[in-house]
Amino acid sequence: MVAGGARPGAGTQSLGPLLNLRLAQPETIADLRHLPDYAGVTRAGDVVRIGAGTTHAAIEDGAVPGRVGEIMATVARRIAYRPVRNRGTIGGSLAHADPAADWIGVLPVLGGSAVAIGPRGERRIPLAGFVTGIFETALAPDELLRAIEVPVLPAEARWGHWKFCRKVGEFSKATACVLAAPGTPPRAVLAALDRPPLVIEDAGALLADPADEAARIVAGLGEMAPWRSALAQAALRHAATAAGAP
């Protein structure tokens, strides 16, 4: 169906409003929730596999084990509202790739991969490069997002997540997430911009000097409204401080 042009849908908590507002007008929607094992979390060795159809509420309630699960539960609780989280899915949110959505601004720091499935079989796409534009991803038109695989984290991993919303549950105006885990360079992501998320693979400088480095990173994104620049810098600063910066 998807190869024939049908729009994939999971919880439709992002697509649904676009349908109602007639901003999206697909001929057909394929309900992915009928796929076997579409929801659910399994752990194999050092990797946690999260079915794309796992709801935000399940993640909020602890479906993902260990330290990475604690981080994801905290993020999930801040997504929209509980009735939306009860139906909306992590895979749907990631594949929809709304620039202000939550998971696209967090998953890149966790490392790991998106598992895509299509006529040519399964392939893994690094989460850091999964979102390629506004509502655009690395998925081919005939591929579906099947699962998300993230590495487990040691208990001492530190992290920070900051997003700016004037009201609980509304779309973020600026989001940053920083993860400092022993043994790997700290990673950061800046999202909710008019562009795909900015992934910083080595955020050591941001942790060493949050204010100056946040200003430098945001200046590097080119011209931006002053309020947006200020919020983006604040997001990076706060997330870095929470992740252990002085």
Binding site: G9, T12, Q13, G16, P17, L19, N20, I29, D31, R33, A57, R82, P83, V84, N86, R87
Partner: peptide
Amino acid sequence: CTVEIDGVPQRSCIVHAGS
């Protein structure tokens, strides 16, 4: 429009009949 679907509160305006 919040109702309970399959035991949990959900928005009935962004859940479509086909699902």
